[in-house]
C-alpha cells in the first residue's frame, strides 16, 4: 500500500531523513517510532505530498507522490501534529468543508459528515465553534476530518500528543477500530502506545532507519535481559554504597549494577540481568538475608532511548555507571 524507497529529505542545513526504505501492507497499523526530531514528521509530510523528497521514491497505493500527487492525496487522510482547524468555524461546518475539499460527492456529504462525527465522538459538539473546544475535542475533530472521505491510508502524526490519559485511551481505541478498513501509519515517541495498537513498528532515529519489525519480534529481541530497579536501606546506617553494589554484582545472573541515587539512607540501583535470566527473586532474598531493608523492587521497562541504544548497538559506547 505504501512503498518508500531510498527516501532522503535534506533541508537547507541538515538532513532530516536519510535514505529510508520501508513498505506497509494493506490493512496494517504501523507505528512510526522515534525520539523528537528523528524525522517522523518529515517522512509523513513527504508521504502526504506536503513536501517533495530530495531524492528517492515514495508511493501510496501505486501512485508516486511527485508524479501524481492529486491521486495520492485523494487516498490519504492526514492528521498533522496540530490539527489544522479554523477556529472561526463550527465543527460540522469544518468537517463538511474538508469533505468537500477531499472530493466527497455532494449527495453523500451530509451522511458522511454525520458518520465521521459519530465515529470520533464529536457528534454532541457538532454545532460548537472550534475555538471553544478543548484540546481533546480538537484532536477528535481533526481525526473526524481525516476519515471523512474514507481514505485507504490514514497518516496520523502524534495523534495522542497533549491528551490526558483518558482521552489517550479513547483515541487509541478509535484508531484500533479504524484498522480493518484502513492502512494506518501513526507516529509517536511513547512506546506503550505502540505496543497497544500496532502490529508493526518502524523505528527511526536521527533520520536513519533503525529497525522495522513486528511487535512480537521486537519485544523478544529487547526483553532478553531484565532490568530491575531496587531501593535499599542498610539497617546499620553506616554502610557505604560500594558494599551494597558489590553484593548485588556478585549474585549469579546479574550482568551489571548501576547506582542511581542516594536519598538520605536510601540507595537506588538499577540491576540488569544476563540474557534470559530472571533475577528478581534472588535479588530480594539476597538483600533481606544481608539484613538490609528492601524498600522497593520492580521490573523497570525500557525507555525508548534505551531501545535505541540497544538497537543501534550504541550502549557499548555509553559509559556505564552514570545514568
Amino acid at each position: 500500500m505504501i512503498k518508500v524507497d531510498g527516501l532522503t529529505k535534506r533541508y537547507a542545513r541538515n538532513v532530516a531523513v536519510d535514505n529510508i526504505s520501508f513498505e506497509v501492507e494493506k490493512g496494517q497499523i504501523v507505528g512510526f517510532l522515534g525520539p523528537n526530531g528523528a524525522g517522523k514528521t518529515t517522512t509523513m509530510r513527504v508521504l502526504t505530498c506536503f513536501l517533495p523528497p530530495t531524492s528517492g521514491k515514495a508511493s501510496v497505493a501505486g501512485f508516486d507522490v511527485l508524479e501524481q500527487p492529486i491521486e495520492v492525496k485523494r487516498r490519504i487522510g492526514y492528521l498533522p501534529e496540530t490539527p489544522p482547524l479554523y477556529p472561526e468555524m463550527e465543527v460540522k461546518e469544518y468537517v463538511r468543508y474538508v469533505g468537500q475539499l477531499k472530493g466527497v460527492a455532494h449527495s453523500e456529504l451530509d451522511a458522511k459528515v454525520n458518520e465521521a462525527c459519530e465515529r470520533c465522538n464529536v457528534a454532541d459538539m457538532k454545532n460548537r465553534l472550534i475555538a471553544k473546544l478543548s484540546k481533546g475535542y480538537r484532536q477528535r475533530v481533526g481525526l473526524a476530518s481525516a476519515i471523512i472521505h474514507n481514505p485507504d491510508v490514514l497518516i496520523l502524526d502524534e495523534p495522542t500528543a497533549g491528551l490526558d490519559p483518558e482521552q489517550r485511551k479513547e483515541t487509541l481505541g478509535l484508531i484500533r477500530e479504524l484498522a480493518g478498513s484502513h492502512t494506518i501509519i501513526l507516529s509517536t515517541h511513547i512506546l506503550p502506545e505502540v505496543e497497544q495498537t500496532c502490529q508493526r513498528v518502524i523505528i527511526i532515529s536521527k533520520g536513519k532507519l533503525v529497525a522495522t519489525d513486528t511487535m512480537e519480534n521486537l519485544n523478544s529481541r529487547l526483553r532478553g535481559a531484565e532490568m530491575v530497579a531496587v531501593e535499599v536501606e542498610p539497617r546499620g546506617g553506616d554502610l557505604a554504597r560500594e558494599t551494597v553494589q558489590q553484593r548485588l554484582e556478585q549474585l549469579s545472573g546479574v550482568s551489571r549494577v548501576v547506582f542511581k541515587e542516594a536519598r538520605g539512607q536510601r540507595l537506588s540501583f538499577e540491576v540488569e540481568s544476563l540474557q534470559g535470566r530472571s533475577i528478581r527473586a534472588e535479588l530480594a532474598r539476597s538483600i533481606v538475608s544481608a539484613d538490609w531493608n528492601l524498600l522497593e523492587l520492580h521490573a523497570a521497562g525500557l525507555s525508548l532511548e534505551e531501545i535505541f541504544l540497544q538497537l543501534t548497538g550504541a550502549e557499548k559506547a555509553a559509559p556505564g555507571g552514570t545514568k
Binding site: 492525496k73 485523494r74 479554523y86 474538508v98 475539499l101 476530518s145
Partner: peptide
C-alpha cells in the same frame, strides 16, 4: 502561521 495551510496542501486541490 497556524499551520492550516497543511490541510489545503494535502487535499486533492491544485
Amino acid at each position: 502561521k497556524t499551520g492550516t495551510i497543511e490541510l489545503l496542501a494535502t487535499s486533492p486541490v491544485t
